[in-house]
Computed example of a mutant assay.
Amino acid sequence: MSTEVKPLPVHYSLAAGAIAGVTEILAMYPLDVVKTRFQLTVGKAESNSILGTFKSIVKSEGPAALYRGIIPPIMVEAPKRAIKFGANDAYKNLYKRNFGFRDSQGLSVLTGVSAGATEALVVVSFDLIKIRLQDKNNAGKYKNTMDCVAKIMQEEGIRGFFKGMEATIWRHAVWNGGYFGVITGVRQALPEPETKQGILLKNFVCGSFGGTVGTLLNTPFDVVKTRVQSQVHPPYKYNWAIPAIVRIAREEGFSALYKGFVPKVLRLGPGGGILLVVYDLVTSYMRKHLL
Rank of each mutant, 00 (worst) to 15 (best):
V174N: 02
W170A: 04
I169D: 03
G69N: 04
Y95V: 07
Y29P: 03
Y179V: 09
R267Y: 10
L290H: 12
R187C: 05
G17C: 08
L14D: 01
T36M: 06
N88T: 07
P191H: 13
P30F: 00
E61L: 15
I74W: 05
Y285A: 13
D89C: 06
E194P: 03
D222G: 04
Y179K: 14
R287V: 05
P193K: 05
E194R: 13
E155N: 11
K44A: 10
K44L: 10
N176M: 14
L128K: 14
V182R: 02
K202E: 11
K92M: 10
R287M: 09
K6Y: 07
V124M: 02
S56G: 10
K151F: 07
K92A: 13
G100Y: 11
F38D: 00
E166F: 08
I50Y: 00
E166V: 13
A78V: 12
L216M: 15
N218T: 09
A27T: 14
G112K: 03
G271S: 07
I25V: 14
K59L: 13
G177F: 07
T23R: 03
G116I: 04
K196P: 03
E4H: 15
V223C: 05
V149F: 11
W240Q: 13
F180Q: 12
M165T: 12
H289D: 08
S125R: 02
I74H: 03
Y67L: 14
M286Y: 13
K44E: 12
A65R: 14
G62Y: 14
F162D: 01
A115W: 02
G177T: 04
V186N: 06
G273W: 05
A244E: 06
D147V: 07
L200E: 09
E4W: 13
F161L: 12
K59C: 04
G86F: 06
S108C: 10
Q39V: 05
S125Y: 08
G271V: 02
L51Q: 10
T184L: 00
A87C: 14
Q197Y: 12
K141A: 13
A65Y: 06
I242H: 09
T195G: 09
S47C: 08
T283R: 08
S60Y: 14
G157T: 04
G100H: 11
Q154V: 02
P9H: 10
V174R: 04
I274Q: 03
V5M: 11
L128I: 03
Y29Q: 06
